[in-house]
Design a protein around this nucleic acid. Structure first.
Lengths: 350, 350
DNA sequence: ATCGTCAATACAAACGTTTGTATTAATCGC
DNA sequence: GCGATTAATACAAACGTTTGTATTGACGAT
C-alpha cells in the first residue's frame, strides 16, 4: 500500500515547483517543452492521478452528478433506471465527471435529501424523476439555481429542461384498446395522486372514456407494486360476476392482476382483460401476452444524459428550450385474444 | 443563489476563529458551553452544511463507496442491482457516506476503471459482482489494500469478504428438475466462460447430468440476453424433431427461449421444456409459469451492505471471515405441466 | 554598459476543513 | 499578591490542487 502519487511527490523528485508540475501536465505553454516532457514522462511512469477531492475543493465543484432513485424502490422499479445509470455514467465519464446515486426512503425525505446533496457539495447537478404537483425538490433546485433535468414535466415547465413520456396518450391508448371488447366495469389503476405522470395518465384515460361514452371508470391510486395489483384485482374478481377490465399504469400492477386471476381460477382474456404499461421484461410472455405500451427506455436515458450535459455546459440560466415529449407506442393487442383466437403483435419489442 | 455557508462565514459573523467554530460544532469540550450554543444556534439558523470536498481532502477519504455495474448492462440486468443500490445507499448515508456508481462499457475496461476509482480517490471502497477467473480487478484491489466486497467468490477466497449465490446448486437443481420428463437433448445455456458464477453453474449442471446417467449435455456460453436465448432456441427448434430441454442460467435467456418457441409455433411444456434462473419479475406469469430458482435479492443486498460497512470499520487487514454462500431455492415446477396437467407451485415468490 | 523584454520558473494564496500548538487571561494555592 | 495551573480561544499548518504574481537570468536594443 505505497503512498499515493501527488504533484508534490513529482515536484520533489524532479526538483521543480509543484506549480510547474501542474502546468506541465496541463500542457501550459509557459513551461519549457523539455520540462514538460520530463514531467509528463515521470507522471506516466509513476501513474500519477490527480486527487478528486483536491480538485473539487479548488474548483468549487464536486465533479459529480446525482441521480435520485425515487421511493419506493422495489424489485419492480422500472428498467429505465439501470439504463439511465449506465448511459449517464458513460457520458459523464467522457467529460471527466462521475455519477452519484441517492435513494431516499420516503417521498417526504426526498426534498431534504436534495438539499443535502446541493449544500454539502455532493453533486453539481441532479437528474430526477417522478415529478409531483408543487414538487418541493424542484422548488428548491430552482431557488438555488442548480442545474437539473427531470423526467416528467413540473409546475415550472419553462424554468428547466425536462424530458417526458406521454402518459396522457398512454392512458388514452389503454382505454381505447380495452374499449373494443369491454364487457364489464373499467378500472383505472394508477400511481398515487400528485405524481405528475400518473395524473396525466388518469386524465388521458378518463377523457378517452368520456369520448367513448363509457360510464365513469373506477379509479385506483396505489403504489405500483405487484402486490397492489393483486389486491385490487382480487377484490374485484371476488365481488362481481361481470368481466372487469384493468388499465394499469405499469406492468408491475398488471402482473399483480395476472396473479390474482390465477389465484381465483379466472382466465385473462375471458374472465377479465388487462392492459399494462412500460413493457417490462417478461410481459411479452404472459398468457395471453400482456398488452402494454413501450417507453423507449434507451432513448429516454440518452436524452436525459445529453440534456444534463448541455445544461451543465450552459453558463446563463434559463429559459431552457429542451423540452421533449416522447411518444408511447402500443405494443401487442392480446386483450382481444378471446374474440379472435389469434394473437396480433402490433410491434415486436426487440 | 446566495454564497454557500462556510465555517469562515460563521466565524466572521461571530467574531471568533474558524477553529473554534469547527470545535463547537463537533461538541469539543474545549469550547465554553455558551460559545458552543451560540455557534450551533447560528449554524442551525443559516443551515450550515460542511463541505464534502474539503472534508474529503483533509481526511484523505472520499466518503464514498463505489458500486461497479458490470457490463454488458441491458434492460435485463438483474433486479438485484436496484435492490443493492437502494439498500446500500441507505446504510451508507446512516454512516455519513455516499454511493458512487460506475458502469464500464466492456469487461476489459473494468480493471482500468477500478484503478481510476482508487487512485483518483473517487471512492474508499468497492462493491463488485460478476467475479472472474484470475480477475484483474481483484488482483489490483488486494495489492492496494482497498476495502472491497464481492458478489461471488474469487481466486483469493480468504483474502477478502464475499457473498455468493450457490450457482453450483442452481445448476444441479435445474438439471434434476428437467430430468424428470426429459424426452430429448439437454442444453445448458450459461454466461461466458471465466465468469465464476457461470462456471459453477455449468459444473453443477454437468455433474448432476453425469450422476443421473445422462449423455453429455450440449453447452452454450453466451451473454445473458433475451436475444441470445432466442437465437439458440431458434436454431435448435429448427433442426430437431425431438423435445429439447433448456437449462438457462438466467430468466432473460429463458424468455428468449419462449420467444423462439412462439415464433416457431412450438408450445413450451409440450415441444420443449425450459428452466430459468433468478426469478425475474414476470417469470411467474409466462405460460406455463417459468420454472426457475430464486436468489433472495433483498437478502443479498443487505448482506453486501453490512459486510462492506464492517470491512470499512475494520482497521487491520485480513483474514476476513465473512464468507456467505446463499442457497438457491427452487420455484415452480411448471416444466412438468404437460404430464400432470396441473401446475404445482413449490413456493410463492412474494 | 544598461535598461527593458521575455522566457522559465518559483513563490504564495486560496478552496473549506481539521487539529496541534501558542497565546491570553483568569483562577488557584500559598 | 505572585507564580503555577487551567480554561478559553487564536494562530498556524496541513490535505492536493490551481492560478495569480514575483523572481531570476539571459538576451537584444539603445
Amino acid at each position: 500500500m505505497q503512498k499515493r502519487v501527488s504533484l508534490k511527490m513529482l515536484a520533489e523528485k524532479l526538483k521543480v515547483d509543484v506549480s510547474t508540475v501542474s502546468r506541465a501536465l496541463r500542457d501550459d505553454p509557459r513551461v519549457k517543452p523539455e520540462t514538460r516532457d520530463m514531467v509528463q514522462a515521470l507522471a506516466r511512469r509513476l501513474d500519477y492521478r490527480p486527487n478528486a477531492a483536491a480538485r473539487a475543493l479548488k474548483a468549487g465543484q464536486s465533479g459529480r452528478i446525482a441521480v435520485l432513485l425515487s421511493p419506493p424502490q422495489q424489485r419492480f422499479a422500472s428498467p429505465i433506471f439501470l439504463e439511465l445509470l449506465s448511459t449517464l455514467d458513460q457520458h459523464l465519464r467522457d467529460t471527466g465527471r462521475n455519477l452519484a446515486v441517492f435513494a431516499a426512503r420516503t417521498r417526504d425525505e426526498e426534498a431534504e435529501l436534495v438539499r443535502q446533496i446541493i449544500d454539502e457539495g455532493l453533486a453539481d447537478g441532479i437528474v430526477l424523476g417522478r415529478t409531483r404537483k408543487a414538487d418541493p425538490r424542484i422548488r428548491f433546485l430552482l431557488n438555488r439555481g442548480v442545474p437539473f433535468v427531470t423526467l416528467g414535466r413540473t409546475d415550472w415547465p419553462n424554468a428547466h429542461p425536462w424530458v417526458e413520456i406521454d402518459y396522457s396518450e398512454a392512458g388514452r391508448l389503454a382505454v381505447r384498446a380495452l374499449f373494443d371488447d369491454l364487457k364489464g366495469e373499467l378500472h383505472i389503476v394508477a400511481a398515487p395522486e400528485g405524481l405528475n405522470f400518473a395524473d396525466y395518465y388518469v386524465a388521458g384515460a378518463l377523457k378517452e372514456a368520456a369520448v367513448l361514452g363509457l360510464p365513469k371508470p373506477r379509479l385506483w391510486r396505489v403504489e405500483m407494486t405487484e402486490a397492489e395489483g393483486a389486491r385490487i384485482a382480487g377484490e374485484i374478481l371476488g365481488q362481481t360476476g361481470s368481466v372487469p377490465a384493468f388499465a394499469c399504469i405499469q406492468d408491475s400492477l398488471a402482473f399483480g392482476v395476472f396473479r390474482a386471476a390465477t389465484a381465483a381460477g379466472a382466465v385473462v382474456g375471458r374472465d377479465l382483460t388487462v392492459f399494462g404499461g412500460q413493457n417490462f421484461p417478461g410481459s411479452e410472455h404472459t398468457s395471453p401476452p400482456l398488452s402494454t405500451f413501450s417507453t423507449e427506455d434507451r432513448r429516454i436515458a440518452d436524452l436525459l444524459s445529453q440534456v444534463m450535459l448541455r445544461r451543465l455546459a450552459q453558463t446563463a440560466t434559463g429559459p431552457f428550450e429542451t423540452h421533449t415529449v416522447l411518444p408511447t407506442v402500443l405494443l401487442r393487442q392480446s386483450h382481444k385474444l378471446a374474440q379472435n383466437e389469434a394473437f396480433i403483435p402490433v410491434k415486436q419489442s426487440g
